[in-house]
Simulated scan of single mutants.
Amino acid sequence: MGDIGSWWVTSQEFRSGEELIGAFYANYMRSGARPLGGKLYLTDQRLLFSPHLLDSALGGEPMWIDLEDIERVTDAEPRAEPAESEHDDSPAKLHVELTDSTRESFVVSDLDDAIEEIAMLVA
C-alpha cells in the first residue's frame, strides 16, 4: 500500500484504495500542549498530520481525522487584541470542526488552498 510522508516527517500507511490529494506544511496547535511542526496531508478518506522527526522524537505523535467526521473547515484571522493564551488565533489558522463538536487547529502554508481542497471533499 505504501506510506504517506517524506524523509523528514513520520510516515503513516495508506488505507486500501486511499489517494493523496494534497499536502501542506503545518503546525498542529494542540490544546494544552506546545504546537507540533510537520506536514498536513489530505487524502480522499482522511486529513492526516505527521510531525517532523524532531517533534516525533520529543513525543509528538501522528494524528488523523476521517473526512466523514469533519463538519466544516474555517479560518480564524489574527486578533487585533492580545490573545488569552499564547496560541489562541494568532496567526491565522485552519480550524477543522468535527461532528462531535470538537475542533482541531493548524497553522498551514497556503491556508486558502487548504480550506478550499478540504471543503470540497467534505461537502
Score class of each variant (00 low, 15 high):
14 F>E: 03
116 E>C: 07
27 N>Y: 14
77 E>L: 11
122 V>K: 04
91 P>W: 04
80 A>M: 13
4 I>H: 00
83 A>K: 12
66 D>P: 12
111 L>E: 09
74 T>K: 03
63 M>D: 09
46 R>W: 10
66 D>H: 12
97 E>R: 10
89 D>L: 13
100 D>L: 02
118 I>Y: 01
3 D>F: 03
23 A>R: 09
60 G>H: 00
34 R>Y: 12
25 Y>K: 12
69 D>K: 09
51 P>C: 07
108 V>A: 06
38 G>H: 06
16 S>Q: 08
35 P>H: 06
60 G>D: 11
44 D>H: 14
60 G>C: 02
43 T>I: 05
42 L>C: 08
89 D>S: 06
49 F>G: 00
29 M>S: 09
94 L>S: 07
76 A>S: 13
86 E>G: 13
40 L>C: 01
103 R>G: 04
65 I>L: 14
27 N>W: 14
75 D>I: 08
55 D>S: 05
113 D>M: 06
103 R>V: 13
78 P>E: 13
1 M>Y: 08
40 L>G: 01
112 D>Y: 11
97 E>F: 07
74 T>C: 06
86 E>W: 12
115 I>D: 12
70 I>V: 09
38 G>T: 01
40 L>M: 02
6 S>G: 09
52 H>L: 10
28 Y>W: 04
47 L>M: 10
59 G>M: 01
106 F>G: 01
91 P>F: 00
29 M>P: 08
27 N>C: 09
16 S>E: 14
